[in-house]
Write a protein that binds this DNA or RNA. Structure first.
Length: 587
DNA sequence: ATCTGATGGTTCC
DNA sequence: TGGAACCCCTCAGA
């Protein structure tokens, strides 16, 4: 009291009535002050701080954006966060209800023109149906591991060993995980010293991998020894300021020419010879000068056909034999930054791009008209600064080249939990085929890769890695493994400050592995269904005690649309486009 | 439970 | 062209 009397009295006035007119924002409320306090203050005017409920997005009062429970309420003053069009919010966006909204499915050609017929047959000797439904699992089990110290930036499956997943992170570390033997992982932390942007296996030696990093180098790392050699260093003089520091983003290998292709943040492409490990020729400007080229992809059938994409809003097709500035064969225009562009993995005749305008674009044939995409699928993958860019990735096992996987940015309220699923999309129809999520994984899985040979999905979410596979595969597992249910932290990360840069993060791993088959939402029960055990290494883990029968089907980890066995429980709403009201009614 | 700090890149002027 | 402002659903650790 005595102390306070030295200062003007500060009143905190918490406003709960958002409906109040904004005119009273400026005026000071008449505060009720006891006569004694008034005497102490001796005429000092109280300062009133009014905490008015204000929309954190547009800073206006009358409505609030943010989570209400597990449902995110959009700011009505902004265009739809999903499709970016004005007039409605994400909640009522028709694309949220159905990803195929506004879609013109790939035409089933019923042509009588013999030329077209021949052309069509040449492109698609047989047009198989999308990967059969039974191969898209209706339930998945999942393994989780965390050994990266920064968020994951890229994933790659081993070309011959089915159980090896390679992962790169923002710090430049390269992780090798044998998810067959859940515990086995290796982290190489001394290859790069900042973001590992892309990696690709050496086509002639699957024991080594090439990686492009923002430190401006290409590395070739032996997976066994971790010994790495540098094929290129674009910053030989070290840091001379941001205007000269070159970072490498896009990377691919042209196996016919034995050349590693990389692209930098200033719009240039570089080549390095695999055999001599030397930089070849001079760099070529392939995107707008000064803009980042984030992706390079060689055509699987004709490696001299190159696809690039970047921050100048274009994906561009090039002929390697005539590679010079401005010589692109085609420029595929986008409305915003293109974060990935890939030829289809089998025929190489389709193109799939992911752009920050929240659209996945598909060109059905590189031999056809490339002026406009064949389809644009509205999908939430606009990302913020803390996430790795989303990329739509092909399923190389789908002979119809229709199935694509991509993580989703905006969450959905799944039985009270805000989850960010990983979406399987049929790019011929725009339909959402399946969504993968787990009630325990609340983070956004922006990095996803499908196994080239097996029904396995790998995801990178923040610093964690996930392996998802259908439960039906469990049938083939030995009994003990089949029932193996690990959940929880096996070892706590030591508190370690920066300083000695010893990079022995493998010592600090947090390891989590769990089976999510029967996982229920967190708040369902407070008592833990897990018991503490120790594994062979003496590490503690938690094992699920089977006290309950299987939960309701809608807690399964994978939701299949239109499936009779696993009902899709995401909210179904009327498509009702409304003009945003100036104020949203308070609950 | 609540808060905070580390973080980039794009767009606009 | 450069620089500042801005950016809707982060994440992890304290």
């Amino acid at each position: 009291m005595r102390r306070r009397s030295l200062f003007p009295r500060v009143m905190i006035d918490k406003d709960t009535e958002s409906e109040k007119s904004s005119s009273d924002e400026e005026e000071e409320d008449a505060n009720v002050v006891s006569p004694e306090e008034e005497r102490i203050q001796k005429g000092k005017t109280p300062i009133t701080v009014t905490l008015k409920k204000v929309c954190k997005v547009c800073k206006r009062s009358g409505h609030e954006a943010g989570f209400r429970g597990a449902t995110y309420i959009d700011c009505p003053m902004k265009p739809c966060f999903l499709c970016k069009l004005p007039g409605h919010t994400t909640v009522t966006c028709p694309h949220r209800v159905a990803t195929e909204y506004g879609m013109h499915p790939a035409p089933h050609k019923n042509t009588t023109n013999p030329l077209e017929f021949v052309f069509q047959r040449q492109l698609h000797p047989r047009l198989p149906p999308i990967k059969p439904a039974h191969v898209i699992p209706d339930q998945v089990s999942c393994a989780v591991i965390r050994y990266h110290s920064r968020r994951i930036t890229c994933l790659e499956f081993h070309p011959t060993n089915n159980n090896i997943l390679l992962s790169g992170d923002k710090k430049g570390q390269l992780g090798i995980w044998d998810f067959g033997k859940v515990h086995e992982k290796t982290v190489y932390g001394n290859i790069h010293n900042c973001i590992l942007n892309n990696m690709k296996f050496n086509p002639t030696n699957d024991g080594s991998i090439y990686a492009a990093s923002s430190d401006g180098t290409i590395s070739c790392t032996d997976l066994e020894t971790g010994i790495s050699l540098s094929l290129m260093n674009l910053n030989p003089n070290g840091w001379e300021g941001p205007s000269s520091w070159r970072m490498l983003y896009g990377l691919d290998v042209n196996s016919e020419r034995n050349v590693v292709l990389v692209a930098d943040n200033f719009g240039y492409i570089y080549m390095a010879d695999i055999r001599s490990n030397n930089k070849m020729s001079k760099p070529t400007l392939i995107h707008k000068k000064g803009t980042k080229v984030v992706g390079l992809n060689c055509n699987p059938l004709q490696p001299d056909l190159l696809l690039s994409c970047g921050n100048d809003h274009f994906a561009r097709i090039w002929d390697m034999r005539l590679l010079e500035a401005g010589s692109s064969l085609y420029n595929l225009e986008h409305k915003r930054v293109v974060s990935s562009a890939y030829f289809s993995p089998l025929s190489g005749s389709k193109i799939l791009t992911t752009s920050l305008d929240n659209r996945i674009r598909v060109w059905d044939s590189i031999f056809g008209n490339l002026d406009n995409p064949s389809r644009e699928i509205v999908h939430s993958h606009d990302f913020n600064r803390y996430l790795t860019a989303f990329r739509a990735e092909w399923d190389a096992k789908d002979s119809s080249e229709s199935l694509v996987v991509i993580g989703r940015y905006i969450s959905e309220n799944y039985d009270g939990a805000a989850l960010h699923p990983i979406d399987f999309i049929n790019i011929r129809t725009g339909q959402l085929v399946a969504e993968v999520m787990d009630p325990n994984i609340t983070t956004i899985s922006s990095v996803n890769k499908l196994h080239p040979r097996e029904d396995i999905l790998a995801s990178g979410s923040s610093r964690s890695l996930f392996i998802w596979r259908p439960n039906k595969l469990d049938i083939a597992l030995p009994r003990e493994e089949k029932r193996m249910v690990l959940c929880g932290e096996l070892s706590k990360k030591r508190n370690k400050k920066h300083g000695d840069d010893s990079d022995d993060d493998s010592e600090n791993d947090i390891f989590i592995s769990k089976d999510i088959r029967f996982k229920q939402k967190k708040h369902a029960s407070k008592s833990s269904p897990y018991k503490s055990r120790r594994n062979k290494q003496g590490e503690e883990y938690l094992r699920r005690v089977n006290t309950h029968s299987a939960p309701p089907a809608h807690f399964s980890s994978m939701y299949i649309h239109g499936s009779a066995t696993t009902p899709y429980s995401a909210p179904v709403m009327d498509v009702n486009i409304v003009v945003p009201a100036s104020s949203v009614a308070e609950p």
